[in-house]
């Protein structure tokens, strides 16, 4: 006589989980995609909605683009390729993403963050980068001074998708 039973995979409880990731990549424009794709993979564990993933991807794209165009744009390469450092941190449903460069820095942060303000209209920049980071994340902090590079710290609370 054969006995049968069914084993179902239990939903893993990821509540309150903490995680951390730190990577460095060269400031090439094709790494904008790499940066946001890695971030999207990192936050999957938080069970985000499609919209939340798109929000974070856009914000990361903005920050990395800023480092490439503005941070390192008029940058005289001293040695090697300029690098961008990215940190992703998970604390339960709180996501923090840090994008940091060692570029020229920002003299007037408030001015740089004004919607439609750009120093590079020649590159068809719309001046909406920081505005979108603010719009798509819950919190953004910019630490920078001339010659000292720029660090952007962005936080987002993930409300999460409902279980199917």
């Amino acid at each position: 006589m054969m006995k049968t039973c069914t084993i179902t995979q239990e939903q893993e409880n990821t509540e309150g989980r903490k995680n951390y990731m730190e990577i460095k990549m060269p400031a090439y424009s094709y790494n904008e995609k790499l940066a946001r794709t890695i971030t999207a993979a990192f936050m999957l564990d938080m069970n985000p909605t499609v919209e939340e993933v798109a929000d974070v991807k856009t914000a990361v794209s903005e920050a990395v683009t800023n480092s490439i165009i503005h941070g390192y744009g008029a940058y005289e390469k001293k040695e090697g390729v300029p690098m961008i450092r990215m940190v992703c941190e998970q604390d339960g449903l709180d996501l923090t993403v840090i994008i940091e460069d060692e570029g020229c820095g920002i003299a007037d942060i408030a001015k740089a963050m004004e919607p439609l303000y750009t120093t590079r209209p020649d590159l068809e920049r719309s001046g909406m980068g920081f505005a979108f980071m603010e719009a798509f994340m819950n919190e953004i902090k910019v630490i920078s001074s001339p010659g000292e590079g720029t660090k952007v710290i962005m936080k987002k609370k993930i409300a999460g998708a409902l279980e199917d």
């Binding site: 856009t58 794209s61 903005e62 683009t65 068809e124 719309s126």
Partner: peptide
């Protein structure tokens, strides 16, 4: 298109 950043705005304006 699913994801776009502000670069799309500048590109269309241009």
């Amino acid at each position: 298109t699913r994801v776009m950043d502000s670069s799309g705005i500048g590109m269309i304006m241009g």
